[in-house]
Nucleic acid binder design. Structure first.
Lengths: 104, 104
DNA sequence: ACCGAGTATGTCTGAATTGACATATAGTAA
DNA sequence: TTACTATATGTCAATTCAGACATACTCGGT
């Protein structure tokens, strides 16, 4: 059973009962995954709200469109660093970031 | 002028006027640095509060004492991922993490 | 159907980050 | 001083993550 694949599915919207139940994660890992997921959804919200394409956001943070796509898909190859950078670059306020953490 | 070294000084308590003024950082970079600094100080608080040595915390999160030291020193070689993992492992609640973000 | 914009996915090479280890330093107690 | 515990610092091989590129998919509009 491939954990990476499952994480992708999670990110795609399959988190029906929380990440922990579906995968076999420790509490810490589970909190980490859920945190990332909520930040990721905040990025998409923020980006759409400001009418930015993935390409535009990529340019703002000197990254690439494919990276933004992977970020929003919660691809396992993206770090929390990159996620938060994207969130900031997308125009999210400190309060938005805070809210994302709360939601997670 | 060495940016890494300056970041270390920042972490050591030299942030008299905010990271942005001292270094020459973009807004995004500055927010990133300040975020890390506040999370890092939250880790130390949380760890001490629960009477954990760096070694004990390292074991909890399957890392090493030297990594924990570097985390708490905001060494440039530590990622936001590792910082947040340490914060979680140190026993910080979701609310604690939120508070750390607010402070940053 | 075709086109175009936006997004998704796979892969590659170089860069950043990791745990581990050695070692240094700080503080405390005997 | 010595001994011990905790923390700091430097280095390095192995792993992870980065941007970039190609390419595929989606969905309106014409």
């Amino acid at each position: 059973m491939n954990t990476e694949k499952l994480k992708r599915l999670q990110a795609a919207g399959w988190q029906t009962g929380g990440a922990k139940d579906f995968l076999q994660l420790s509490d810490e890992e589970a909190r980490m995954v859920e945190l990332k997921l909520s930040l990721v959804s905040a990025i998409k919200k923020s980006r759409i709200k400001r009418k930015l394409s993935q390409i535009a956001l990529a340019q703002l943070m000197k990254s690439s469109q494919s990276r933004i796509a992977k970020i929003e898909a919660a691809d396992p190859s993206v770090s929390l660093d990159l996620i938060v950078r994207a969130l900031i670059a997308s125009g999210a306020t400190t309060r938005d970031i805070q809210a994302a953490f709360t939601a997670g």
